[in-house]
Amino acid sequence: MTYITHSRLSKSVDTFREVWYKFSKNRLSIVGLLIVLIITILAAFAPYIAPYPAHAGRFVNFPEASQPPGSRHLFGTDVNGRDILSRIIYGYRFSLMMGVFVLALVVPIGVTLGLIAGYFKGTLIDTVLMRITDIFLSIPPLVLALAIASVLTPNLTNAMLAISLSWWPWYTRLVYGLVSSLRNEFFVQAAKATGASTPHILFREILPNCVSPVLTKMSLDMGWVILMGASLSFVGLGVQPPKPGLGSMIADGTQYLPDSWWMVVFPGIAVMIVVLGFNLFGDGIRDLLSEEEA
C-alpha cells in the first residue's frame, strides 16, 4: 500500500516537473504566469491589500482631491480624493470576475453546440446551428456587445451577458472544426459499432480530444474578455459608479487631461498589463499542450 502511494506521488512529481519544463522553456510564459498570479492574488485579497479599501466605494475627501502620485498615494488620487491604486486593485476584482463568469457561461454552451453541429455534419442540425453561429460571427463582437448592453440596464451582470452573447460562436467554430475531423477517426467508428450512445461518443470519446485547443483558447481569451469588459465600462455600460471599473476610471479621467494624467495613465497601464499577462500565459499553455500532443 505504502509502495503504491509512494510511486503515485513520485509519478505526479515527475509529471509536474515535465509540465513545468515545457511551460518554462519560453521565459515570457513565466512572466505571464507571474502577472496572472499577482493580479489574481490582488483581486482575491483586495480588502487586505488595497491601501485604502474604503476608496473603492462611495467615498469623498476633497482636501486630497486630484493629488499627483506621491508617497501617500502611489498612483495619485481622483477628483473625489480617492486613491487610484486601491481603485485599480478593486477594478481587477470586477475584471477577473467578468472574465471568469463570461468563460464559464460561454465555453460549455459554445463547445456543446460545436460538438453537436460537428458530429451531425451535413445534416439539418449542422446547417441550422452553424448558420446561426455565422450570423453572430459576422457582427464585430464589440459592436454586438455594445448594442446588447445598451438595450439592457447598465450593470456588471448585463455587461457579462452581452459579452457572452458575442463570444460563444468562437468556441462553436473551434470545436466544430475539430469534431469534423475527429468524427471520422476509427475510435469513434469503433464506439459507434459497439452501439455506444451519442452522448457517450460526444462527451466521452470526442470531447477529451478537444480539451487542449479549448483550454488554450480560454487562457488567451481571458485577456480579451477583460479588455472588452473595460471597453464597455469605458462607455458606461459596465460596473456602475461608485464601484471602480478600469474602463470607467479611464473615461472619468479623460476630462482632466493632460494636467491630471495619472487618472488615465495608471488604469490604462493596469488594463494593458492584465491583457498582456493573460496572453503570455496563454502562449505558454499552448506550447505546453501542443507539445503534449506530439
Binding site: F186, F187, Q189, A191, A193, G195, E205, P208, N209, V211
Partner: peptide, 19 residues
C-alpha cells in the same frame, strides 16, 4: 454488435488516445 465485431486497420487511430 454483440454478434458481429470489427478490428480496424490502424490501431493508432482505432483506440482513443484520451482513454
Amino acid at each position: 454488435s454483440r454478434k458481429l465485431q470489427i478490428v480496424f486497420q490502424d490501431p493508432g487511430s482505432s483506440l482513443n488516445p484520451k482513454r
